[in-house]
Design a protein around this nucleic acid. Structure first.
Length: 493
RNA sequence: CGGGACGUGGCGCAGCUCGGUAGCGCACUUGCCUGGGGGGCAAGGGGUCGCAGGUUCAAAUCCUGUCGUCCCGACCA
């Protein structure tokens, strides 16, 4: 927070005070940082560009992993694990790949430390590695190496592998979740006998990602193909989901690449076909990272902090006893309610701490817990409780019986999940503007308007490149729905 | 990597121009009153001012260097 709470009170007044300052309107990037802090998701670490993902933030990631991992396994991909370190020579195998990655890799050059002249530990000169290793920025090359050994015959195909791991990319400008030096992700690597199968697979995996975004993240992004200048180095095609954040900027939410035979050739992934001849395989790779958590935050949260879609919420319901003096009876009542909800598969956060009730409420709000239940003595006596939906705020407060709540809670959560997706999708669609000329695009972004411009791909050319540079825009994607005739242009993270 | 801003108790900041050994709000502790969208009163605990040098009788304040953070840009498989 930039202001003290006292100042906030003065300037904002009690009724309009927000839990997060600045607001989205005032300063979106800073708001984003403060939502993360207020929800206790992550914090900076002593290592530049790296973050500590705190338990609550990691719990969200675990829910994401579970959802995505299930879907990946549903399409017959198997999980495996490959080394963190990749021989330098592997990275240089694929020419375009080298250009794309080499510069921003962390390199391991020694294998032992010793005390230097001043007593500090230094890499021992005689422990220098003959061939340095890079810390994986992505694993096409080392997985390709294994594939080349595992694949002999067309009967070994398709070979579909996935790994959950960390990678490092020495980015210039790190930002929490969105672009950290080290990040967590899954990377899938599939190999096929034919170009058609590989192409279909790249599309299929993008579809899997889209399902996860819609069903779990409640984010309705735009699926499409990357323009050649935005492609993964070494890919013949890159597919993406571009998600629009509340400030109108785009987040490349995941990618799925059709690598053609480029990596198969450089990694020597060959098989003997039914025709008895040797052929190079056709491969794909597809990745989904902790960046998605940044997208989750920027899509849904408001000026009071995080708002989580129920399916990715570590807690579905926060139960807050409202007590004075001896609250033991209400506490016990709340415990029973919590147990009952848990038995129904609801994830419950029961706040029996001795904080003041108003603090408990704000805490639940900032954590983005979808439903907040409040129970006081009076309600307990009447067998009732009140609850509020986080996305709708205090005006949505409803008072129902405990039985009714338990009977409908799943429906309420499902409704909230659906409403959030509808809202996200509508926001995105409402902020895509068809434009006929580059002049129109220039005017739009010069006026700091929010959203994407959708223009005809016939406008591509030198003028388009100048415009992009001038206003720091980029081609986000060629939406599938426009069948390659249109491109979305916008600012991005 | 270029431009800008910033690093002072857990958090947010003031003090620095005119050097004299640290202050405020929140949080925290204790007590009492309160208790359904951030309550009140009172008494307390906690920091040597990012780090390293330099100038000086004296440095949070001046100088040099360095590390880190944030924003904008470049970059971003």
């Amino acid at each position: 927070m930039t202001n003290t709470q006292a100042q906030q009170k003065q300037s904002a007044g009690k009724n309009t005070r927000t839990a997060i300052t600045p607001t989205r309107e005032e300063n979106f990037p800073e708001w984003f940082q403060n939502v993360i802090k207020a929800a206790d998701l992550a914090e900076n670490s002593p290592v530049r560009g790296c973050m500590v993902i705190k338990p609550y933030g990691y719990a969200i990631w675990e829910l994401i992993q579970r959802a995505l991992d299930d879907k990946i396994k549903d399409v017959d991909v198997k999980n495996a694990y490959f080394p963190l370190l990749i021989p330098l020579s592997f990275i240089s195998r694929e020419a375009e790949h080298v250009d794309g990655f080499a510069k921003e890799c962390a390199v391991v050059t020694h294998h032992r430390l010793e005390k230097g002249p001043d007593g500090k530990l230094v890499p021992a000169p005689d422990s220098e590695l003959e061939e340095p290793f890079v810390i994986r920025p992505t694993s096409e090359t080392i997985i390709g190496d294994s594939m080349s050994k595992w694949i002999q015959s067309y009967r070994d195909l398709p070979l579909k592998l996935n790994q959950w791991c960390n990678v490092m990319r020495w980015e210039m400008r790190p930002r929490m979740f969105l672009r950290t030096t080290e990040f967590l992700w899954q990377e899938g690597h599939n190999a096929f006998a034919t170009a058609e199968e590989a192409h279909e697979d790249a599309m299929k995996m993008l579809g899997v990602y889209n399902q996860v975004y819609e069903e779990f993240f409640a984010i309705g992004g735009i699926q499409g193909e990357k323009t050649p200048d935005e492609r993964f180095p070494g890919a013949i095609n890159t597919y993406t989901i571009e998600a629009m954040m509340q400030d109108g900027k785009s987040l490349q939410a995941c990618t799925s690449h059709d690598l053609g035979q480029n990596f198969a050739k450089s990694c020597d992934i060959k098989f003997q076909g039914e025709d008895g001849q040797q052929h190079h395989a056709h491969t794909t790779s597809w990745g989904f990272s902790t960046r998605s958590v940044g997208g989750l935050i920027m899509s849904h949260s408001d000026d009071d902090g995080l708002i989580l879609p129920p399916k990715l919420a570590p807690y579905h319901v926060a139960i807050i006893p409202i007590v004075k003096d001896d609250g033991s009876a209400v506490f016990e009542h709340c415990r029973q309610l919590a147990a009952r909800l848990k038995a129904q598969g609801i994830r419950v956060h029961l706040d029996l701490s001795d904080s003041r009730s108003s603090d408990k409420m704000w805490s639940a709000i900032k954590l983005g817990i979808p439903l907040r239940v409040e129970i006081g003595q009076r309600e307990m006596d009447e067998g009732k409780l009140s609850y509020v939906r986080r996305d709708l705020g205090k005006d949505s407060k409803a008072i129902v019986t405990g039985d009714e709540f338990c009977g409908t809670v799943q429906k309420v959560l499902d409704q909230m999940q659906a409403d959030m997706l509808a809202k996200s999708t509508k926001f995105t669609r409402d902020h895509i503007f068809d434009m006929k000329s580059l002049a129109e695009v220039r005017e739009f972004f010069k006026a700091d308007k929010v959203g994407f411009a959708r223009i005809d791909t016939s406008l591509f050319g030198a003028d388009y490149d100048v415009l992009k540079k001038e206003l720091s825009l980029s081609s986000r994607c060629l939406p599938f729905e426009d069948e390659g005739r249109k491109v979305l242009v916008g600012k991005s993270y």
